[in-house]
Simulated scan of single mutants.
Amino acid sequence: MTITISDASLVPIISLAAGVAILVVPRLLNYIVAGYLILIGVLGLVHF
C-alpha cells in the first residue's frame, strides 16, 4: 500500500498540525509561523 501526498494536500496537513501545536504550546506560534512561511517560500521557488 502506497500513500502519496501532493502539494495540494500538504498545506492543510501542515495547517492542522500548526493549529494543534499552537493550542498546546502558544509560545510556539512564532516558530510555527516562521517555519510555515519558509516552507511555502521554498515550495514556491522549487516549482518556479
Rank of each mutant, 00 (worst) to 15 (best):
D7S: 10
L10G: 01
G19Q: 12
L10M: 15
S6V: 05
L10E: 05
S15Y: 13
A8P: 01
T2P: 07
I22K: 15
D7I: 11
A8D: 10
V33M: 10
I38D: 04
Y36W: 12
A18I: 12
I38M: 15
L43I: 07
L23G: 10
V46D: 00
T4M: 05
V46G: 01
L28M: 10
I32P: 00
R27I: 14
L39E: 09
A18Y: 02
S15Q: 14
G35L: 03
V46H: 04
T2D: 07
L37N: 14
A21N: 09
I3H: 04
A17K: 02
A8G: 05
T4Y: 00
V11C: 02
D7A: 14
F48R: 03
G19S: 08
P26E: 06
I22E: 14
D7K: 09
I14D: 06
L28F: 11
I38P: 06
V20S: 09
A34M: 15
I22P: 02
I3D: 05
I5S: 04
V20G: 07
I38S: 14
V33G: 04
P26M: 07
I22H: 10
V24A: 06
V25Y: 13
V11R: 11
L37D: 12
G19L: 00
A17R: 00
I14W: 04
Y36F: 15
L23V: 07
L39V: 12
L29C: 12
G41C: 04
L43Q: 01
L37Q: 14
I40P: 00
L16H: 11
A17P: 04
I40W: 10
I14Q: 03
L10Q: 08
A21E: 04
F48I: 09
G19P: 08
S15N: 14
I3L: 10
L10C: 06
R27N: 13
P12V: 11
I13L: 14
V24N: 03
L10Y: 08
V25G: 09
V33T: 08
V46W: 08
N30Y: 14
L45G: 02
V20A: 15
I40K: 14
M1T: 13
Y31P: 05
S6R: 09
N30I: 15
S9Y: 00
I14C: 09
V20T: 11
L16Q: 13
G19N: 12
V20Y: 01
N30T: 15
G41T: 08
I13M: 11
V24M: 11
F48Q: 04
A21V: 02
I38H: 11
P26N: 01
Y36Q: 08
Y31A: 13
